[in-house]
Design a protein around this nucleic acid. Structure first.
Lengths: 206, 206
DNA sequence: ACCTGAACACCGTTCAAGT
DNA sequence: ACCTGAACACCGTTCAAGT
């Protein structure tokens, strides 16, 4: 057997399996994904994956970690080089865009049970992702475009908003059918001089 | 066999199965839930459920619809009889509280694939749930506590925020370990004269 | 109408065995 | 070290059959 037919003995079976899992999840969702089918696509026996992953959840965690890396890159890329507040908003739009573009990948990142046990590489990737957002919020504060203090909480606040939009959109709970409409809604939520839901100014009070 | 031993021939097998599913999901998560185990707990054969539910997803949809009903009731109850803005905030807190108290039920409501096919009773229950929120936003606008117009979008905005908080909390993405801390964060997000993320006032601009 | 048992084609996971 | 085949205890779903 030439090496081209069996390249899995050279150490890249792990990545091959992860990519097969990504493709499989993209097709049928995290629930439809099976270890045996991933192995089948990688051209190995149904329990070869156990040489590289503890169990099914461990492979899902690898998919999730890969997703967090891609998401962080997409946010940084989208932010560009404009003012801090616009960078924050654009990264939020990129977050929602990512979720709509790779709904299954997104589900593997947040709905999988990888918090049950320890999947350090996955938690680290998620932390890097949040760190990107935190940096943008800090820049907004440094530039006087957001109130000072509570930097972490404000970043978690921004994350919650875009995460909720992404999740509800993927769950089909919004009336908007196209991705463009959802992104317009996201811009609505983060626009108008706030990155949140506006209340009327408390006139006459204090 | 006395009726007490076999009460399932009288038409309440459907509810019994749904409650068994709820309990099962609460114990092991939506993924751990199986039709066969639910049937076992209900004391019927492993395919008796097919008399009442099309398939596994159909039973999950019944669980989800039940969850939406409970959530809507919890939000209305929590709102109480104070001012409109406080009612909106309290219902948001109740939303997050519900998600933290019944994480698996909440997952069945939003992560299950019941949007793939038609589960009308589930969609209707979700709509009633959103309608509660929409009513509170409208009352805020009528009382001049939120800017007029875009009522639907503002309600979806509020929903997105609390949904994101609930989801990220249940995914273990927040640093806060206790429910009380998460609820305090939720109050932080919806407090301070806004129900969203504050940006600094655009001084000097228009 | 409602429920049952047997059957089919799948899973995840384990284990002894091969190179 | 890395991979395989057989085996175990599960699934969801279908179908002919029972009352």
């Amino acid at each position: 057997m030439p090496a081209a037919v069996r390249p899995y003995h050279h150490g890249n079976l792990k990545e091959t399996l992860r990519d097969a899992a990504v493709a499989l999840i993209a097709e049928t969702g995290p629930r439809g994904f099976t270890l045996r089918e991933a192995a089948r696509r990688a051209g190995v026996s149904h329990n070869a994956p156990y040489r590289h992953f503890r169990d099914r959840n461990d492979l899902l965690a690898a998919v999730a970690a890969d997703g967090f890396d891609r998401l962080a890159r997409a946010m940084t890329r989208a932010a560009g080089r404009s003012g801090p507040l616009n960078r924050l908003r654009r990264s939020g739009l990129a977050y929602v865009d990512f979720a709509l573009r790779w709904p299954q990948h997104f589900a593997a990142m947040f709905d999988a049970p990888w918090k049950d046990t320890d999947y350090p590489e996955c938690a680290a990737a998620a932390q890097r992702c949040f760190g990107t957002l935190l940096g943008f919020v800090r820049q907004c504060q440094d530039a006087g475009q957001m109130p000072p203090g509570d930097t972490e909480r404000r970043a978690y606040h921004a994350w919650s908003l875009v995460h909720g939009i992404a999740k509800l959109a993927n769950a089909g709970q919004f009336p908007w059918r196209s991705k463009a409409e959802v992104l317009r809604f996201c811009a609505f939520c983060t626009g108008e001089g706030s990155v949140g839901l506006q209340t009327a100014p408390q006139r006459g009070k204090k």
